[in-house]
Design a protein around this nucleic acid. Structure first.
Lengths: 206, 206
DNA sequence: GTCTATACTGTGATAGAC
DNA sequence: GTCTATCACAGTATAGAC
Protein backbone atom coordinates (compact mmCIF):
# COMPACT_ATOMS: atom_id res chain seq x y z
CA UNK A 1 0.00 0.00 0.00
CA UNK A 2 2.65 2.43 1.09
CA UNK A 3 4.78 1.24 -1.79
CA UNK A 4 1.96 1.91 -4.19
CA UNK A 5 1.35 5.36 -2.81
CA UNK A 6 5.01 6.23 -3.09
CA UNK A 7 5.12 4.99 -6.64
CA UNK A 8 2.10 7.05 -7.60
CA UNK A 9 3.47 10.23 -6.14
CA UNK A 10 6.74 9.63 -7.89
CA UNK A 11 4.99 9.01 -11.19
CA UNK A 12 2.95 12.17 -10.75
CA UNK A 13 6.06 14.18 -9.96
CA UNK A 14 7.80 12.72 -12.99
CA UNK A 15 4.87 13.52 -15.20
CA UNK A 16 4.72 17.06 -13.87
CA UNK A 17 8.39 17.57 -14.61
CA UNK A 18 7.94 16.26 -18.14
CA UNK A 19 5.05 18.65 -18.65
CA UNK A 20 7.16 21.50 -17.31
CA UNK A 21 9.95 20.68 -19.74
CA UNK A 22 7.54 20.51 -22.65
CA UNK A 23 5.97 23.83 -21.73
CA UNK A 24 9.43 25.40 -21.67
CA UNK A 25 10.23 23.79 -25.03
CA UNK A 26 7.08 25.31 -26.56
CA UNK A 27 8.07 28.72 -25.25
CA UNK A 28 11.53 28.49 -26.76
CA UNK A 29 10.18 27.16 -30.07
CA UNK A 30 7.67 30.01 -30.29
CA UNK A 31 10.23 32.66 -29.41
CA UNK A 32 13.26 31.49 -31.39
CA UNK A 33 11.80 29.20 -34.01
CA UNK A 34 11.18 25.46 -33.97
CA UNK A 35 14.54 24.53 -35.47
CA UNK A 36 16.38 26.89 -33.12
CA UNK A 37 15.22 24.98 -30.07
CA UNK A 38 18.20 24.10 -27.87
CA UNK A 39 18.36 21.87 -24.82
CA UNK A 40 20.30 24.60 -23.04
CA UNK A 41 17.48 27.08 -23.41
CA UNK A 42 14.95 24.53 -22.24
CA UNK A 43 17.07 23.46 -19.28
CA UNK A 44 17.73 27.03 -18.21
CA UNK A 45 14.03 27.79 -18.32
CA UNK A 46 13.15 24.90 -15.99
CA UNK A 47 16.17 25.47 -13.74
CA UNK A 48 18.15 22.40 -14.72
CA UNK A 49 21.51 21.60 -16.23
CA UNK A 50 21.15 20.48 -19.86
CA UNK A 51 22.18 16.84 -19.28
CA UNK A 52 19.48 16.48 -16.65
CA UNK A 53 16.87 16.64 -19.37
CA UNK A 54 18.04 13.21 -20.47
CA UNK A 55 16.53 11.79 -17.29
CA UNK A 56 13.12 12.70 -18.70
CA UNK A 57 13.59 12.48 -22.47
CA UNK A 58 16.02 10.19 -24.18
CA UNK A 59 16.92 12.70 -26.89
CA UNK A 60 16.06 16.05 -28.34
CA UNK A 61 13.93 14.32 -30.94
CA UNK A 62 12.00 12.63 -28.13
CA UNK A 63 11.05 16.12 -26.96
CA UNK A 64 9.95 17.04 -30.47
CA UNK A 65 7.99 13.79 -30.55
CA UNK A 66 6.16 14.55 -27.32
CA UNK A 67 5.44 18.06 -28.61
CA UNK A 68 4.06 16.59 -31.83
CA UNK A 69 1.71 14.34 -29.88
CA UNK A 70 0.63 17.21 -27.64
CA UNK A 71 -0.09 19.47 -30.59
CA UNK A 72 -2.28 16.95 -32.39
CA UNK A 73 -4.06 16.04 -29.17
CA UNK A 74 -4.84 19.71 -28.61
CA UNK A 75 -6.15 20.01 -32.13
CA UNK A 76 -8.21 16.88 -31.66
CA UNK A 77 -9.86 18.50 -28.65
CA UNK A 78 -10.46 21.76 -30.51
CA UNK A 79 -11.94 19.92 -33.47
CA UNK A 80 -14.16 17.76 -31.26
CA UNK A 81 -15.47 20.87 -29.53
CA UNK A 82 -16.12 22.53 -32.88
CA UNK A 83 -17.88 19.43 -34.18
CA UNK A 84 -20.14 19.33 -31.14
CA UNK A 85 -20.82 23.04 -31.30
CA UNK A 86 -21.30 23.34 -35.06
CA UNK A 87 -24.90 23.42 -36.19
CA UNK A 88 -27.01 24.41 -39.11
CA UNK A 89 -26.50 23.53 -42.75
CA UNK A 90 -23.75 21.20 -43.95
CA UNK A 91 -21.98 24.23 -45.35
CA UNK A 92 -22.11 26.06 -42.06
CA UNK A 93 -20.72 23.02 -40.28
CA UNK A 94 -17.88 22.58 -42.73
CA UNK A 95 -17.05 26.26 -42.59
CA UNK A 96 -16.98 26.22 -38.81
CA UNK A 97 -14.61 23.26 -38.70
CA UNK A 98 -12.46 24.83 -41.41
CA UNK A 99 -12.14 28.03 -39.43
CA UNK A 100 -11.10 26.11 -36.33
CA UNK A 101 -8.41 24.29 -38.31
CA UNK A 102 -7.20 27.52 -39.90
CA UNK A 103 -7.11 29.46 -36.65
CA UNK A 104 -5.32 26.62 -34.89
CA UNK A 105 -2.66 26.51 -37.60
CA UNK A 106 -2.17 30.25 -37.80
CA UNK A 107 -2.00 30.73 -34.05
CA UNK A 108 1.41 29.09 -33.73
CA UNK A 109 3.96 28.83 -36.54
CA UNK A 110 6.29 26.52 -34.64
CA UNK A 111 3.43 24.17 -33.81
CA UNK A 112 2.20 24.09 -37.40
CA UNK A 113 5.71 23.42 -38.69
CA UNK A 114 6.01 20.51 -36.30
CA UNK A 115 2.56 19.13 -37.10
CA UNK A 116 2.37 19.57 -40.86
CA UNK A 117 5.78 20.31 -42.31
CA UNK A 118 9.07 18.47 -42.31
CA UNK A 119 11.01 21.26 -40.72
CA UNK A 120 13.26 19.21 -38.45
CA UNK A 121 15.63 16.99 -40.42
CA UNK A 122 15.56 13.41 -39.24
CA UNK A 123 12.49 13.81 -37.08
CA UNK A 124 9.77 11.24 -37.60
CA UNK A 125 6.88 11.09 -35.15
CA UNK A 126 6.49 7.84 -33.26
CA UNK A 127 3.43 5.70 -33.83
CA UNK A 128 2.06 6.77 -30.46
CA UNK A 129 2.43 10.48 -31.15
CA UNK A 130 1.05 10.03 -34.64
CA UNK A 131 -2.16 8.41 -33.40
CA UNK A 132 -4.13 11.59 -32.55
CA UNK A 133 -3.26 12.95 -35.97
CA UNK A 134 -4.69 9.88 -37.66
CA UNK A 135 -7.79 9.99 -35.47
CA UNK A 136 -8.47 13.64 -36.23
CA UNK A 137 -8.16 13.15 -39.97
CA UNK A 138 -10.30 10.02 -39.97
CA UNK A 139 -13.03 11.57 -37.90
CA UNK A 140 -13.19 14.60 -40.14
CA UNK A 141 -13.41 12.32 -43.18
CA UNK A 142 -16.19 10.37 -41.51
CA UNK A 143 -18.13 13.50 -40.61
CA UNK A 144 -17.79 14.83 -44.13
CA UNK A 145 -19.00 11.48 -45.48
CA UNK A 146 -22.13 11.85 -43.36
CA UNK A 147 -22.69 15.24 -44.94
CA UNK A 148 -22.45 13.63 -48.37
CA UNK A 149 -18.76 14.01 -49.27
CA UNK A 150 -17.71 10.41 -49.80
CA UNK A 151 -14.73 10.87 -52.12
CA UNK A 152 -11.54 10.78 -50.10
CA UNK A 153 -9.84 12.94 -52.72
CA UNK A 154 -12.38 15.70 -52.09
CA UNK A 155 -11.53 15.58 -48.41
CA UNK A 156 -7.82 15.89 -49.20
CA UNK A 157 -8.58 18.88 -51.41
CA UNK A 158 -10.39 20.61 -48.55
CA UNK A 159 -7.44 19.97 -46.23
CA UNK A 160 -5.10 21.36 -48.88
CA UNK A 161 -7.16 24.50 -49.38
CA UNK A 162 -7.30 25.33 -45.69
CA UNK A 163 -3.74 24.26 -44.98
CA UNK A 164 -2.52 26.20 -47.99
CA UNK A 165 -4.26 29.36 -46.86
CA UNK A 166 -2.86 28.96 -43.37
CA UNK A 167 0.67 28.38 -44.63
CA UNK A 168 0.48 31.45 -46.86
CA UNK A 169 -0.82 33.47 -43.97
CA UNK A 170 2.08 32.35 -41.79
CA UNK A 171 4.72 32.80 -44.49
CA UNK A 172 3.62 36.10 -45.99
CA UNK A 173 1.48 37.86 -43.42
CA UNK A 174 2.20 36.42 -39.95
CA UNK A 175 -0.11 37.88 -37.39
CA UNK A 176 -2.42 39.28 -40.06
CA UNK A 177 -5.74 38.02 -41.32
CA UNK A 178 -5.56 38.55 -45.08
CA UNK A 179 -6.01 34.86 -45.88
CA UNK A 180 -8.61 34.27 -43.19
CA UNK A 181 -10.86 36.65 -45.07
CA UNK A 182 -10.59 34.41 -48.12
CA UNK A 183 -11.47 31.23 -46.28
CA UNK A 184 -15.24 31.47 -46.67
CA UNK A 185 -14.95 32.08 -50.39
CA UNK A 186 -12.46 29.23 -50.85
CA UNK A 187 -14.54 26.75 -48.86
CA UNK A 188 -17.63 27.79 -50.80
CA UNK A 189 -15.84 27.02 -54.07
CA UNK A 190 -15.00 23.60 -52.68
CA UNK A 191 -18.55 23.03 -51.40
CA UNK A 192 -19.96 23.93 -54.83
CA UNK A 193 -17.41 21.68 -56.51
CA UNK A 194 -18.25 18.63 -54.43
CA UNK A 195 -21.97 19.34 -54.45
CA UNK A 196 -22.31 19.85 -50.72
CA UNK A 197 -25.97 20.58 -50.07
CA UNK A 198 -27.02 23.98 -48.73
CA UNK A 199 -29.57 22.36 -46.47
CA UNK A 200 -29.23 19.34 -44.22
CA UNK A 201 -30.61 16.02 -45.39
CA UNK A 202 -34.28 15.77 -44.51
CA UNK A 203 -34.51 19.39 -43.41
CA UNK A 204 -37.29 19.88 -45.97
CA UNK A 205 -39.39 16.99 -44.72
CA UNK A 206 -40.68 17.79 -41.22
CA UNK B 1 43.40 46.37 -71.48
CA UNK B 2 45.40 43.66 -69.82
CA UNK B 3 44.11 44.84 -66.49
CA UNK B 4 40.57 44.50 -67.72
CA UNK B 5 41.20 41.02 -69.06
CA UNK B 6 42.68 39.92 -65.76
CA UNK B 7 39.78 41.36 -63.84
CA UNK B 8 37.29 39.60 -66.06
CA UNK B 9 38.95 36.24 -65.73
CA UNK B 10 39.14 36.67 -62.03
CA UNK B 11 35.52 37.68 -61.80
CA UNK B 12 34.56 34.67 -63.87
CA UNK B 13 36.58 32.38 -61.66
CA UNK B 14 35.00 33.92 -58.60
CA UNK B 15 31.54 33.49 -60.00
CA UNK B 16 32.27 29.89 -60.95
CA UNK B 17 33.45 29.15 -57.42
CA UNK B 18 30.32 30.72 -55.98
CA UNK B 19 28.19 28.60 -58.27
CA UNK B 20 30.14 25.50 -57.25
CA UNK B 21 29.58 26.26 -53.58
CA UNK B 22 25.86 26.80 -54.14
CA UNK B 23 25.54 23.56 -56.09
CA UNK B 24 27.21 21.72 -53.21
CA UNK B 25 24.89 23.46 -50.76
CA UNK B 26 21.85 22.28 -52.71
CA UNK B 27 23.16 18.73 -52.67
CA UNK B 28 23.64 18.78 -48.92
CA UNK B 29 20.23 20.39 -48.36
CA UNK B 30 18.53 17.75 -50.49
CA UNK B 31 20.35 14.86 -48.85
CA UNK B 32 20.28 15.90 -45.21
CA UNK B 33 17.48 18.44 -45.02
CA UNK B 34 17.54 22.21 -45.42
CA UNK B 35 18.03 22.97 -41.74
CA UNK B 36 20.78 20.35 -41.46
CA UNK B 37 22.98 22.18 -43.93
CA UNK B 38 26.45 22.75 -42.47
CA UNK B 39 29.34 24.76 -43.85
CA UNK B 40 31.60 21.80 -43.15
CA UNK B 41 29.62 19.54 -45.46
CA UNK B 42 29.57 22.18 -48.16
CA UNK B 43 33.28 22.92 -47.83
CA UNK B 44 34.19 19.22 -47.92
CA UNK B 45 32.16 18.77 -51.07
CA UNK B 46 33.96 21.55 -52.93
CA UNK B 47 37.36 20.59 -51.52
CA UNK B 48 37.80 23.59 -49.25
CA UNK B 49 38.31 24.21 -45.59
CA UNK B 50 35.14 25.57 -43.96
CA UNK B 51 36.52 29.06 -43.27
CA UNK B 52 37.39 29.48 -46.94
CA UNK B 53 33.70 29.72 -47.72
CA UNK B 54 33.75 33.12 -46.05
CA UNK B 55 35.81 34.43 -48.93
CA UNK B 56 32.79 33.87 -51.13
CA UNK B 57 29.83 34.31 -48.78
CA UNK B 58 29.81 36.50 -45.74
CA UNK B 59 27.73 34.10 -43.66
CA UNK B 60 25.73 30.92 -43.76
CA UNK B 61 22.56 32.95 -44.16
CA UNK B 62 24.14 34.61 -47.20
CA UNK B 63 24.35 31.13 -48.73
CA UNK B 64 20.71 30.52 -47.91
CA UNK B 65 19.94 33.89 -49.42
CA UNK B 66 21.72 33.11 -52.68
CA UNK B 67 19.93 29.74 -52.78
CA UNK B 68 16.61 31.51 -52.25
CA UNK B 69 17.30 33.82 -55.16
CA UNK B 70 18.42 30.93 -57.36
CA UNK B 71 15.32 28.89 -56.57
CA UNK B 72 12.90 31.69 -57.42
CA UNK B 73 14.86 32.57 -60.55
CA UNK B 74 14.62 28.95 -61.66
CA UNK B 75 10.91 28.95 -61.00
CA UNK B 76 10.56 32.21 -62.88
CA UNK B 77 12.18 30.58 -65.91
CA UNK B 78 10.01 27.49 -65.62
CA UNK B 79 6.88 29.60 -65.31
CA UNK B 80 7.85 31.82 -68.23
CA UNK B 81 8.42 28.75 -70.38
CA UNK B 82 5.07 27.33 -69.32
CA UNK B 83 3.34 30.64 -70.03
CA UNK B 84 4.84 30.76 -73.52
CA UNK B 85 4.05 27.13 -74.20
CA UNK B 86 0.54 27.08 -72.74
CA UNK B 87 -2.22 27.36 -75.27
CA UNK B 88 -5.91 26.71 -75.67
CA UNK B 89 -8.70 27.75 -73.34
CA UNK B 90 -8.14 29.89 -70.24
CA UNK B 91 -8.74 26.79 -68.17
CA UNK B 92 -6.12 24.80 -70.03
CA UNK B 93 -3.63 27.63 -69.56
CA UNK B 94 -4.29 27.94 -65.87
CA UNK B 95 -4.07 24.19 -65.40
CA UNK B 96 -0.78 24.03 -67.25
CA UNK B 97 0.77 26.78 -65.12
CA UNK B 98 -0.64 25.16 -61.97
CA UNK B 99 0.95 21.85 -62.85
CA UNK B 100 4.31 23.52 -63.42
CA UNK B 101 4.11 25.19 -60.02
CA UNK B 102 3.06 21.96 -58.34
CA UNK B 103 5.75 19.86 -59.99
CA UNK B 104 8.38 22.44 -59.21
CA UNK B 105 7.40 22.47 -55.54
CA UNK B 106 7.14 18.71 -55.20
CA UNK B 107 10.44 18.02 -56.97
CA UNK B 108 12.54 19.37 -54.10
CA UNK B 109 11.42 19.56 -50.47
CA UNK B 110 14.43 21.57 -49.34
CA UNK B 111 13.91 24.09 -52.12
CA UNK B 112 10.21 24.47 -51.34
CA UNK B 113 10.93 24.93 -47.64
CA UNK B 114 13.40 27.67 -48.46
CA UNK B 115 11.07 29.36 -50.96
CA UNK B 116 7.73 29.14 -49.22
CA UNK B 117 8.11 28.19 -45.59
CA UNK B 118 9.93 29.76 -42.67
CA UNK B 119 12.04 26.74 -41.93
CA UNK B 120 15.31 28.49 -41.07
CA UNK B 121 14.98 30.61 -37.92
CA UNK B 122 16.26 34.10 -38.44
CA UNK B 123 16.59 33.85 -42.18
CA UNK B 124 14.99 36.65 -44.15
CA UNK B 125 15.67 36.91 -47.87
CA UNK B 126 17.38 40.07 -49.04
CA UNK B 127 15.54 42.48 -51.28
CA UNK B 128 17.64 41.36 -54.23
CA UNK B 129 16.91 37.66 -53.71
CA UNK B 130 13.26 38.41 -53.10
CA UNK B 131 12.85 40.22 -56.41
CA UNK B 132 12.31 37.18 -58.68
CA UNK B 133 9.69 35.93 -56.24
CA UNK B 134 7.80 39.19 -56.49
CA UNK B 135 8.11 39.23 -60.26
CA UNK B 136 6.79 35.69 -60.63
CA UNK B 137 3.78 36.34 -58.44
CA UNK B 138 2.98 39.64 -60.12
CA UNK B 139 3.26 38.22 -63.60
CA UNK B 140 0.99 35.33 -62.74
CA UNK B 141 -1.52 37.76 -61.29
CA UNK B 142 -1.33 39.87 -64.42
CA UNK B 143 -1.79 36.87 -66.71
CA UNK B 144 -4.77 35.72 -64.70
CA UNK B 145 -6.24 39.21 -64.89
CA UNK B 146 -6.02 39.01 -68.68
CA UNK B 147 -7.95 35.76 -68.52
CA UNK B 148 -10.64 37.52 -66.51
CA UNK B 149 -9.62 36.88 -62.89
CA UNK B 150 -9.23 40.38 -61.54
CA UNK B 151 -9.79 39.77 -57.83
CA UNK B 152 -6.43 39.49 -56.10
CA UNK B 153 -8.03 37.33 -53.42
CA UNK B 154 -8.99 34.78 -56.05
CA UNK B 155 -5.39 34.63 -57.19
CA UNK B 156 -4.24 34.04 -53.61
CA UNK B 157 -6.78 31.25 -53.29
CA UNK B 158 -5.38 29.54 -56.37
CA UNK B 159 -1.84 29.81 -54.98
CA UNK B 160 -3.08 28.37 -51.70
CA UNK B 161 -4.81 25.44 -53.37
CA UNK B 162 -1.78 24.42 -55.40
CA UNK B 163 0.70 25.16 -52.63
CA UNK B 164 -1.45 23.28 -50.16
CA UNK B 165 -1.63 20.23 -52.38
CA UNK B 166 2.13 20.33 -52.93
CA UNK B 167 2.86 20.67 -49.21
CA UNK B 168 0.56 17.76 -48.39
CA UNK B 169 2.23 15.69 -51.08
CA UNK B 170 5.65 16.47 -49.62
CA UNK B 171 4.62 15.92 -46.02
CA UNK B 172 2.50 12.81 -46.36
CA UNK B 173 3.48 11.10 -49.58
CA UNK B 174 6.94 12.30 -50.63
CA UNK B 175 7.89 10.94 -53.99
CA UNK B 176 4.32 9.87 -54.70
CA UNK B 177 1.65 11.45 -56.87
CA UNK B 178 -1.53 11.11 -54.82
CA UNK B 179 -2.11 14.86 -54.65
CA UNK B 180 -1.05 15.52 -58.22
CA UNK B 181 -4.01 13.44 -59.34
CA UNK B 182 -6.30 15.80 -57.45
CA UNK B 183 -4.88 18.95 -58.98
CA UNK B 184 -7.12 19.07 -62.04
CA UNK B 185 -10.23 18.62 -59.95
CA UNK B 186 -9.15 21.24 -57.44
CA UNK B 187 -8.26 23.80 -60.10
CA UNK B 188 -11.56 23.13 -61.83
CA UNK B 189 -13.42 23.91 -58.61
CA UNK B 190 -11.50 27.18 -58.41
CA UNK B 191 -12.13 27.98 -62.09
CA UNK B 192 -15.85 27.39 -61.62
CA UNK B 193 -15.83 29.47 -58.47
CA UNK B 194 -14.20 32.49 -60.07
CA UNK B 195 -16.14 32.11 -63.31
CA UNK B 196 -13.13 31.44 -65.51
CA UNK B 197 -14.50 30.99 -69.06
CA UNK B 198 -14.16 27.63 -70.78
CA UNK B 199 -13.34 29.36 -74.05
CA UNK B 200 -10.98 32.19 -74.76
CA UNK B 201 -12.35 35.69 -75.19
CA UNK B 202 -13.42 36.20 -78.80
CA UNK B 203 -12.92 32.56 -79.75
CA UNK B 204 -16.55 32.47 -80.88
CA UNK B 205 -16.32 35.51 -83.13
CA UNK B 206 -14.03 34.72 -86.11
C1' DG C 1 43.05 38.21 -52.99
C1' DT C 2 42.52 33.60 -51.69
C1' DC C 3 43.44 29.93 -48.97
C1' DT C 4 45.16 27.35 -44.49
C1' DA C 5 45.68 27.08 -39.57
C1' DT C 6 43.86 27.87 -35.43
C1' DA C 7 40.83 29.25 -31.85
C1' DC C 8 36.35 30.74 -29.53
C1' DT C 9 31.66 29.75 -28.43
C1' DG C 10 27.77 26.85 -28.32
C1' DT C 11 25.35 22.30 -29.44
C1' DG C 12 23.62 17.36 -28.52
C1' DA C 13 25.11 13.61 -26.10
C1' DT C 14 27.49 10.27 -22.69
C1' DA C 15 29.83 8.67 -18.30
C1' DG C 16 30.19 8.66 -13.68
C1' DA C 17 30.06 10.94 -8.89
C1' DC C 18 26.74 11.93 -5.34
C1' DG D 1 17.35 12.31 -10.30
C1' DT D 2 20.57 15.78 -10.75
C1' DC D 3 25.02 17.24 -11.10
C1' DT D 4 30.05 17.83 -13.08
C1' DA D 5 33.13 16.71 -16.58
C1' DT D 6 33.92 15.73 -21.09
C1' DC D 7 33.37 14.71 -26.03
C1' DA D 8 32.75 15.52 -31.08
C1' DC D 9 31.28 18.77 -34.02
C1' DA D 10 28.67 22.99 -35.32
C1' DG D 11 29.13 28.29 -36.88
C1' DT D 12 32.03 32.00 -36.73
C1' DA D 13 36.16 34.89 -36.72
C1' DT D 14 41.02 36.23 -37.06
C1' DA D 15 45.94 35.77 -38.34
C1' DG D 16 49.08 34.79 -41.55
C1' DA D 17 51.08 31.97 -45.55
C1' DC D 18 51.36 32.23 -50.45
Amino acid sequence: MLGMANRDRRAERREATRAEILEAAWEVAREKGLAALTLRDVATRVGMQPPSLYSHFESKNAIYDAMFGQAWSEYERADLAAAAEASGSPRARVLKRSLVFFDFAVADLARTQLMNQRTIPGFEPSEESFAPSVRAVQRTAKDLAELGVTDRGDVEILFSIIGGLADQQLANDPGGDSRRKLLTRAVTMWADGVGLPHEAKGSQEP
